[in-house]
Amino acid sequence: MSTTTETRRITTAKAMAEGIGLEMQRDPNVFVMGEDVGAYGGIFGSTTDLFGEFGADRVIDTPISETGFIGAGIGAAVEGLRPVVELMFVDFYGVCMDQISNHMAKIHYESGGNVKVPMVLMTATGGGYSDAAQHSQCLWGTFAHLPGMKVVVPSNPYDAKGLMISAIQDDNPVMYMFHKGGQGLVWMEKNPRSIGEVPEESYTVPIGKAAIAKEGSDVTIVTLSLSVQHSLDVAEELEAEGISVEVVDLRSLVPLDKETVLESVGKTGRVLVVDEDYKSFGLTGEIAAIIAETDPGLLKKPFSRLAVPDVPIPYARPMEYGILPTRDKIKAAVKDLMA
C-alpha cells in the first residue's frame, strides 16, 4: 500500500470502477461483463466511465441471462482470462446459483487444484430504499457458507478500490459484494462515509484482513458493509456520552480474520455483531461460535447481535426500517451491553 498526500474524495462506486480500470490497463486479460455495465456504467455505478475508456470489446453488455454469462465468465477464467462479472442484484442468485456454487466455487477443488478460476463476481446488496423482498437482500452469509469462493464486502471508497484490485489479481473466484446504499449514488440516501479519500494510483487492500475502523475500549462492534458506516456514526455519538466503541470492519468473510475479532473482543469484553443479512444460521452466529470455541471467558457480558429477524425484506418504509439494523437499534444494543 503506498502513501499519498492526495486528498481527492470520490464515491465508493467510482473507486470500484477505478480499481477495475487500473487492472484493465495493467492486464489485457481483464475484461468486464454483465447487464448494463457498458454505456450505462453499471446500474449502481460499478463500471462508471469504463465503457468510454475501454470500449465495447472489454466492457461487454450481456443478455439478461445470468446462468449464461456467469458460466461464460467461468469458462473464460478457466482459459486464463480474468473476467470481472457483475450480477446486478445479489437477489438474482436464484437463477444462476448452479454456476456460482457448483462450478465457479468447485472447479478448483474438484480438479485437485489443477484448474484455477480467477474471476470476480461483483454484486449489489442491501436494502433501505423500499425495493422489497427480491431486491434488498445481503445474502453474503449464504455465499460465505458455500466453500470455494472468497467473499469480500467493502464498506468505504478506499477499501472498495483496494479490495477490487486484490480480487482481480487473486487466482481464486472472489464474490465482491457491495452495498447499494454505500455506493455514494446521487439517487440513494446520502451516507456521507460513501465518499472518501482515495489515491489515484493502484494499491491493494488484502483479502482476509479486517480493519479497526475506529478504536475503542468498552464495546466491540463486529460488522461489515454499510453497517460499518452506521456503526461509526453511532460510535461517534456514544463517544460524547462516555462510551468508547471499537468498530471492527470485517471487509472479508472468506477468509475471515478471526484474530482481529478475538483480539478486539478480548480487549473490550463486550461484543455486538451487526449484520444486515438474515439472523439465523449466518454471520452473527458464526462470530458467536468463534468466540465460544476460542474462549467463552473473553466476554464480560452475554454475546449480542443485531440482524434482519428472519423475515423477507418488506416494502413499506416503516416495516423495512423496522427490521434493518439502523443506527437507533445499534445504539440501543450498545447501551444494553453497557448497562
Partner: peptide, 25 residues
Amino acid sequence: HFSCSGIIAQGLPVACGQALAFQRK
C-alpha cells in the same frame, strides 16, 4: 482443455466462456 460437469446442461455456459476466451485471444 477437458472438463465435465455432473449438473445437466450446466457445462454449456462454461464452454461458451472457453469459446469466448479463444475468440478474445
